[in-house]
Nucleic acid binder design. Structure first.
Length: 586
RNA sequence: CGGGGUGUGGCGCAGUCGGUAGCGCGCGGCGUUUGGGACGCUGAGGUCGGAGGUUCGAGUCCUCUCACCCCGACCA
């Protein structure tokens, strides 16, 4: 059985548990997986999976496989090293920044390390798909990706080399894509439920992938990098990057004449409101950026709201935004702290909807210590773009039901994208319809990071003693602990027999047969986190018993030694039952 | 890329005013122990991240550099 994932003697296990976590680990999942001998770092954001960790990840991947197969997915495997040509064809070779690693091979050909596989799957599609008769199709693989993140952080949650299940749907039309999109949505819900993850599904930004729709599967966690806004009535959930809220009704008011007002020492909107004793909603805030194109982007929003850079970037048509410097601000005729769009030049004026609907606001006068009263869009300045550029925060009203939204940190464990025809058009992946006309294949792409799922499960399932795996992805169903001394190895022999019985009963068992003291073995069992612990000692043996304890429970029970394997099997089955992927009963 | 921090034995750390490197855990041997990380004796293990410099002498001071961590920017 040595080397088998179904059973393992700890005396032979590669990897040692650590009493203390390395000092540079911060997240619970990172510390615990290091201490439990599941992962080891090789470099920043680069990890080896040790046998215990690999066992878990394999189970996560197997669950993914089963559920994607169940919606018609066909597994294949695409390369990690790509010729740059296909990335040039899609345009991403130019678009994507240094997070994509580029190199040249010995023949001086441009190559890249795969960040994702849209280009390759589209290349395959243009070779293999010719006719409408061949569609729809769904292919996927579980493959290494490399993304040279400017900063890998959060231990195992955000790494540079990682493994992802990515599937790609190929359809005749949008209707077909809708079907595959919904299929993935359901499959993902089943996958994460089977892994024991608590999650929410939110609307998301389409980012560098392009495409028309995207949802993210977010596992709630204090260590999440994303913020999700959730309606308490379940009417709405979205990533903060794209979240919207119910806007106030437009204010109907006579336009008053523009008026200069001295407002010394009011560089912040709050100071201004306090000084003039007006609510924040009657002020206009100016935020200054310079786009990647070099254009000055002048954002205007009502004083009670904040600018969402993701939305602003899209509204301005810029790939990136950098906060403007004081010199750049003065160059367009504005003044930091006292800025308004009135009278500025050489800037793209992007105005939030809140401004359009709010007359007679207080705004900067573009000179230090002065503001303007009764500033009005259209009369006093023109907007180049009017858009929703507001950042949604907790407490703002739900767009659907007006209930105050709540905000929570979350880890993105999966996402689904409607790509449409962006890649198929650029790479020429087309099919002929029944009338003999050519159309681009309509595509979707769907990702799950298996390692990130694993670490996220640890974030949600641990205590001060260690990990408490859901049985569906635990490295082993049971830890068998023998407690014996050199003088009396009868418990060890009994445990040996129980080990065999457990294996025969189909219980995946991690057998701690080491000649360690009870405390060491119990602590390691708690740390590694198999859901069931079975102990055999002189004490239990005297009564012909074994002790059974669940990782998540405090009390243990004693059962006849000869029945122990069957009982553990039953307990294991019982632990699997709620992890069957179906929605919990209401 | 900006800001901050840390690099000393496998892990966690100490090292004062510059004076020839130490503690705990872990590891090997022997003995005593044996149900929640035992105890005694003994032993192995470190060019103090790297390079240069100052100095009679550098873990310690200076310069450069590398790695890693945190915050931000960035990011399917």
């Amino acid at each position: 059985m040595q080397g088998d994932f179904d059973a393992m003697r700890m005396s032979h296990l590669f990897g040692r548990t650590l009493r203390e976590a390395p000092g540079d680990a911060e997240l619970p999942s990172h510390k615990l997986m290091l201490r439990a001998a599941m992962v080891r770092p090789l470099g920043a954001g680069i990890y080896s999976l040790l046998p215990l960790g690999w066992s878990v990840v394999r189970k996560v991947e197997q669950i993914i496989r089963e559920e994607i197969n169940a919606i018609g997915g066909q597994e294949l495997l695409m390369p990690v090293v790509h010729p740059a040509d296909i990335w040039k064809e899609s345009g991403r070779y130019q678009q994507v920044g240094p997070e994509m690693t580029r190199f040249v091979d010995r023949g001086e050909r441009d190559m890249v390390l795969a960040m994702t596989h849209e280009e390759v799957v589209t290349d395959l599609a243009r070779q293999e798909i010719n006719s409408y008769r061949q569609l729809p199709m769904l292919v996927y693989h579980i493959q290494t990706k490399w993304r040279d993140e400017p900063r890998s952080r959060g231990g195992l949650i955000r790494v540079r080399e990682f493994t992802m299940k990515d599937s790609y749907s190929l359809d005749l039309d949008e209707a077909g894509l809708d079907v595959q999109y919904r299929n993935h949505w359901r499959a993902y819900e089943r996958i994460f439920r089977r892994c024991g993850l608590a999650f929410v599904v939110v609307g998301a930004d389409t980012g560098m992938m392009g495409g028309s729709a995207s949802h993210e599967f977010m596992a709630l966690s204090d260590y999440g990098e994303d913020i999700v806004l959730i309606c308490p009535n379940g009417d709405y959930a979205a990533n903060q990057e794209v979240a919207v809220f119910q806007r106030d009704a437009p204010t109907a008011e006579e336009l008053l004449p523009l008026e200069d007002v001295a407002t010394p020492n009011t560089p912040t909107i709050q100071a201004l409101a306090d000084f003039l004793n007006v609510p924040l909603t009657r002020t206009a805030k100016a935020v200054f950026f310079v786009g990647d194109s070099g254009r000055f982007v002048f954002a205007v929003i009502r004083g009670d709201l904040d600018v969402n850079e993701t939305k602003l970037r899209k509204a301005a048509g810029e790939r990136g935004l950098t906060p403007a410097t004081a010199e750049q601000i003065q160059a367009i005729g504005a003044e930091a702290g006292y800025g308004s769009p009135v009278g500025v030049h050489d800037a793209l004026i992007v105005v939030d909807e809140s401004i359009r609907d709010s007359p007679n606001l207080v705004a900067g006068a573009n000179k230090p210590g002065y503001h303007l009263k009764n500033v009005n869009l259209g009369r006093d300045y023109q907007a180049d773009v009017i858009a929703d550029i507001a950042s949604v925060t907790a407490g703002l009203p739900c767009a659907e039901c007006a209930a105050p939204l709540t905000a929570a940190r979350a880890i993105e464990v999966g996402n689904i994208f409607k790509l449409g025809t962006r890649y198929s058009q650029l790479l020429g992946a087309t099919y002929l319809d029944a009338a003999g006309e050519s159309h681009p294949v309509v595509m979707g792409s769907y990702g799950i990071g298996s390692g990130r799922v694993t670490a996220t499960v640890v974030e949600q399932h641990h205590d001060e003693r260690g990990i408490a795996w859901p049985i569906s992805i635990a490295p082993y169903h049971a830890s068998l602990v023998s407690i014996y001394t050199a003088d009396d190895d009868a418990p060890a022999q009994a445990a040996d027999r129980l080990y065999s019985a457990l294996i025969d009963a189909g219980v995946e068992t991690l057998y701690d047969d080491r000649p360690e003291r009870a405390g060491v073995k119990f602590n390691d069992a708690d740390l590694i986190g198999c859901p069931i612990r079975v102990s055999v000692s002189a004490r239990t043996l005297a009564k012909g018993e074994a002790e059974i304890k669940l990782r998540t429970e405090r009390e243990s029970r004693f059962v006849p030694l000869e029945d122990a394997a069957a009982i553990v099997r039953d307990i294991a089955d019982g632990l699997f039952a709620p992890l069957d992927g179906d929605p919990p009963a209401a």
